[in-house]
Design a protein around this nucleic acid. Structure first.
Length: 498
RNA sequence: GGCCCGUUAGUCUAGUGGACAAGGACGCCGCCCUCUCAAGGCGGAGAUCACGGGUUCGAAUCCCGUACGGGCUACCA
């Protein structure tokens, strides 16, 4: 195939961008980038009932968030626009007209109710095989007069009788054969004059000079119909690559009842776009026998349809989470801070960006910035999702901590903890410097002093200072919290232990 | 019912006729490190390559059948 590579991702805005759709988008994007081709984004919004503008916006922002930039499409335009099917009506009307003159279609006056009824009875008796071609045998004059009288009608494609098998080579699955005579005369234009998916998509793919159609294998049965339409319209078929489904843990196609399925949900629950991209890219494609962490440029350099697996994959949230942790740990402290900022602001009603914590030139905040920066690596290696940062740093952001019940019973209400806490408070109060080393030096002496195991001592202090059983490392945490707040918390906790 | 697709450990995968009594990753288990939780290090369990036939000197790899799973079967996409 010498022609230029042009692929398209054509989501239907009937919902948010879901996991399966994203993977399709990733493969299309990577394929285009790999071959120096174009990645076209087209919105297949022919389902007027369920398509919404909000969904379209959500899809665009999800793609942007993931770094999947398109060369032509909504908001940026392009030579093959418009990129919304609802705005391409003229093309569909013209195509229908051509098929009418070439006698490749015929009007069908059967009502939807009628068809449903027939379908049902035939299926019940075992032998349903699609539309029975009833209107195909209408005489030309009858059809014409019913048309003229304004009788509601759809347009059906005449599946040829002498066409033979439809054969094509799927880039993922290899040779595919569909017997033509098993296909019924499908509707291409509805009675409200709008095109169906099969019709619109073929016309657009022709007009947009799409070279490779990479899509979910739920479209596999549509492919022979579309090939017939390409032929009827005198166009060459593009190459096809059908991706297997992404399944839920029960082996059924991934859906909302399996939990989070939209990109936005993953973003909101603290996933990094690069991690989601990485995970999804490898769900059905592999670089080699051992690579699991792969950045987008490596993906682009190596992506090929040949290495796309043809069997369905079960989506594993645990592996995604692990991978997200890998990416979080890999983030430079500055980046990490920037990424957690929105989550922290949301949780504590702070406005870190506005208070210039992260702006290096804002005097007075420099200190706080540096302070926070110290903490970053300590936290980043402890979380797998950005949202998990919130409980870990809560003790630094609230004036009054609340001691969790478990922390109280398991750490504070232990034999000797009252003495421990008083000793710790005294030791910390007596320090000249209040940095990590000094704090550690002071606190390390406590276990022996009170005759308890280090773990017992430090857990009591941790509970007093953070209110929790789990926190970033104690000495650093205390140094960051500051002497005043630390000592105050420890004394209060001591007082509450009788 | 019809048409189509798929089948390597719980999961994602490597494997394209001999180097595979099957490699990597997640998860799981154990040990080490350790102030908690993580991270990290080391080690381990886990696959009769769905099953049955064939082709071949030789099959996870090719062919056929069966079973199981999935998709489509709409004037949805």
């Amino acid at each position: 195939m010498a022609e230029r590579v042009r692929v398209r991702f054509a989501p239907s805005p009937t919902g948010q961008l879901h996991i399966g759709g994203v993977r399709t988008a990733i493969y299309n994007w990577a394929f285009a980038r790999r071959h120096g081709g174009s990645f076209v984004l087209r919105i297949d919004d022919t389902d007027a009932e369920r398509s919404t503008e909000a969904n379209t916006q959500a899809i665009l922002s999800s793609l942007r968030w993931l770094g999947l930039d398109w060369d032509e499409g909504p908001e940026i335009g392009g030579l093959s626009g418009p990129y919304f099917q609802t705005k391409r009506r003229a093309y569909y009307d013209a195509a229908l007209e051509r098929l009418q003159t070439s006698d490749a279609v015929y009007p069908c006056f059967c009502s939807a109710e009628e068809l449903a009824l027939r379908r049902e009875t035939e299926r019940a008796t075992g032998g349903f095989s699609g539309y029975d071609r009833r209107c195909r045998s209408l005489s030309v004059s009858e059809a014409k007069s019913r048309l003229v009288s304004g009788e509601p009608h759809a347009w059906r494609f005449k599946v040829p009788d002498d066409r033979g098998d439809i054969v094509f080579y799927d880039e993922v699955r290899g040779k595919s054969v569909f017997p033509c005579d098993a296909m019924d005369d499908f509707v291409i234009v509805r009675s409200d004059a709008t095109p169906t998916y099969n019709f619109a998509t073929v016309i657009d793919d022709i007009e947009m000079a799409i070279s490779h159609i990479i899509r979910g294998d739920d479209h596999l049965p549509n492919t022979p119909r579309q090939i017939l339409l390409f032929e009827a319209l005198g166009a060459e078929s593009p190459s096809f690559a059908h991706l297997s489904m992404i399944l839920g843990p029960d082996g059924k196609r991934l859906s909302k009842r399996h939990g989070a399925t939209s990109v936005e949900e993953y973003r909101d629950s603290g996933y990094l776009p690069e991690a989601l991209l990485n995970y999804l890219a490898l769900l059905g494609w592999s670089l080699d026998d051992r690579t699991t962490i792969i950045d987008s440029s490596t993906l682009v350099q190596n992506f090929s349809l040949e290495r796309v697996s043809s069997n369905p994959a079960v989506f594993d949230p645990e592996k995604l989470e692990w991978m997200n942790g890998v990416y979080i740990r890999d983030l430079p402290p500055e980046d990490f801070l920037e990424r957690i900022t929105p989550y922290i602001d949301a949780a504590f009603q702070t406005d870190i960006a506005a208070s210039a914590t992260l702006a290096p030139n804002a005097e007075g905040q420099k200190e706080r910035n540096a302070w926070f920066l110290q903490l970053a690596p300590l936290i980043s290696e402890r979380v797998k999702r950005l949202t998990e940062v919130v409980p870990l740093v809560e003790f630094l952001f609230v004036d009054e901590i609340e001691i969790e019940e478990e922390a109280r019973t398991k750490a504070l209400l232990k034999e000797g903890s009252r003495e421990t806490l008083f000793a710790a408070a005294d030791a910390l109060e007596a320090l000249e410097e209040f940095d990590t080393e000094a704090v550690e030096g002071a606190l390390r002496a406590i276990p022996e002093q009170v005759g308890l195991k280090p773990k017992t001592v430090f857990q009591a202090i941790r509970a007093a200072v953070s209110g929790k059983l789990v926190s970033p490392p104690l000495f650093e945490s205390i140094a960051l919290l500051g002497r005043e707040r630390t000592v105050d918390r420890i004394r209060r906790a001591a007082a509450s232990v009788t």
